[in-house]
């Protein structure tokens, strides 16, 4: 079975070396002491001249994250923004996914392709498009003024509103696809049976369609929520200069402050926040189905 061993070993070693080992290096550096050198951190232990080992590992970076309210606010803001952006994406995406799933089969693939197509164009360019549209004299303000909704241009760019818009816009296809996959599998005769028995359309939706599409709702929400928490580009381009979201904080700790231990601690803490929803989702998926 030499062939089998090779098939397993090649991707296995690649992932060990370039995924798992780097993760442990981050963990290690998060416990190192920062220093003004290249690279800017100290080893976790030193062997002194008389052969004794001296431990220099420290949890200072984590203490720093807890003490400075700046970081707690950044985590709070990231989780809040990601949560509400996910909710908005769900509210927009669900009717769309339902609309596609209930279309006639020849239409379905075409509509699905229309939803996926923007995903294949550059993410950066799609975020930039909103920067153009949301300018003071941009198309969104012009349209709102023409409709008589406002008579002064609104400051939308560089607010949290713009960040929500950017996240919902960029990740909407990730919400729609799993929702569609769940809704498409639903047996339409269940709805009809409920309707025949006198249930109102709202009741049919709440009692049948919604619960049966729950796996799609959870998968789609996770696919939007997780990247949104660590998002860097959207708050950087559309958010205000002080809109500290955690991805941006990590970037700045690393590139601007050159504080590698703190950047690593920020990364480890972010992972801890993300592990919780992922584990809950796993538990939900593995629960015994009747």
């Amino acid at each position: 079975m030499r062939g089998r061993a090779t098939v397993i070993a090649v991707p296995y070693l690649w992932l060990l070396l370039f995924f798992l080992v780097p993760f442990f290096i981050v963990l290690k550096i998060s416990f190192s002491e920062g220093t003004l050198a290249q690279p800017p951190y100290l080893p976790l232990y030193e062997v002194t001249d008389n052969g004794e080992m001296e431990i220099t590992a420290t949890a200072d970076s984590y203490a720093f994250l807890i003490e400075d309210p700046f970081y707690a606010e950044a985590y709070g803001r990231s989780l809040r923004v990601a949560f509400f952006a996910t909710l908005i994406a769900l509210l927009i995406g669900y009717p769309m996914a339902l609309g596609i799933a209930r279309s006639k089969p020849p239409w379905r693939n075409f509509l699905l392709m229309l939803v996926i197509l923007p995903f294949w164009t550059s993410f950066l360019i799609r975020v930039y498009a909103w920067k153009v549209l949301l300018q003071g004299n941009g198309a969104v303000n012009a349209a709102l003024m023409a409709l008589g909704v406002i008579d002064q241009p609104l400051q939308i760019l560089y607010t949290d509103g713009a960040i929500y818009l950017g996240i919902v816009y960029s990740y909407l296809p990730f919400m729609i696809l799993p929702l569609y996959a769940a809704l498409e599998r639903l047996d339409a005769s269940l709805d009809e049976a409920a309707a025949d028995l006198g249930a109102s359309p709202l009741r049919v939706f709440l009692a049948i369609t919604l619960p049966l599409s729950m796996p799609g709702i959870l998968a789609g929400s996770l696919l939007v929520f997780i990247p949104a928490v660590g998002e860097f580009v959207i708050p950087e381009l559309l958010g205000g200069p002080d809109a500290a979201m955690i991805g941006r904080v990590l970037w700045n700790e690393f590139f601007a402050n050159r504080d590698w231990p703190v950047a690593s601690a920020v990364a480890i803490a972010m992972l801890l926040f993300l592990v919780i929803p992922i584990m809950l989702f796993q538990r939900y998926q593995e629960r015994p189905t009747r």
Binding site: P22, V26, P227, G247, W251, L274
Partner: peptide
Amino acid sequence: VMPEVITGLS
């Protein structure tokens, strides 16, 4: 599901 900033940093 790994945030890009973490993959890049690690």
